[in-house]
Design a protein around this nucleic acid. Structure first.
Lengths: 113, 113
DNA sequence: GAATTACTTAGCGATATGACTAAACATGAA
DNA sequence: TTCATGTTTAGTCATATCGCTAAGTAATTC
């Protein structure tokens, strides 16, 4: 069994390149072969392969080879895990904002007659 | 006016380091001076300064200097922008999954008597 | 005004990233 | 079996990242 638990380091690292995000976006439309994936990027095939391996390392994309073509498809799991982290962070930040607002409210209350 | 529009390259790049994510998490509890921020990381101050500048470049953190201490605080805007991107992606991916499921359902229907 | 505190800058070294070309494999078709 | 197709590997180059130390600057404190 190849079950990777989501690694935020690898996932964010993978997402920070626009070419890779574009690849993900294209794969969202449906699975593609490596050469199809490479075409609109304008990069050489080995370069795209490298990007692909970064995406696979982060478990954002899965691929399998049948015959001589490798078919790539998105793996939703990793993205959802990352989304979870971000939502959690936002909650923390906003909680803090709420507390701050409450504090300011208290101040204003105590200053009014 | 210094209004940066959120740059996903810089934001994801900033988020891919665990030290920086830890810094963000700590700042979620409230603003901190650079040295306070540095303390639990175990890294030298210049190293932490570098991480901080990466976070500021991504507009995830703001800081201002008063006297000789610099106070850092989270900027929610960038995180929310990133969250938007991810939610959008997830929607696309899931739309695709839905289509796939619908297709499979159609297949099964047409195969049953 | 000298010492301390809190950053800041400069510069180094090891490693990683992102592009490339050229050459090697491996499979399917002729 | 030979040839074309679709990847894959190997190796190069330029630049970026992440850690460090040492030395600088600027504001308080004594």
């Amino acid at each position: 069994m190849t079950k990777h638990e989501p690694d935020l380091n690898l996932i964010f690292q993978a997402l920070c390149d626009p070419t890779r995000r574009a690849m993900l976006a294209r794969l969202a439309q449906g699975p593609l072969a490596v050469s199809e994936l490479a075409l609109p990027t304008g990069f050489a095939l080995p370069t795209v392969m490298r990007h692909l391996s970064v995406l696979e390392r982060a478990d954002l994309v899965h691929s399998e080879k049948t015959g001589r073509t490798r078919t790539c498809r998105n793996n939703p799991v990793a993205l959802v895990a990352t989304l979870d982290w971000m939502v959690q962070q936002r909650a923390l930040w906003e909680q803090r904002t709420d507390r701050l607002e409450a504090y300011v409210a208290t101040l204003m209350k105590s200053e009014s007659p």
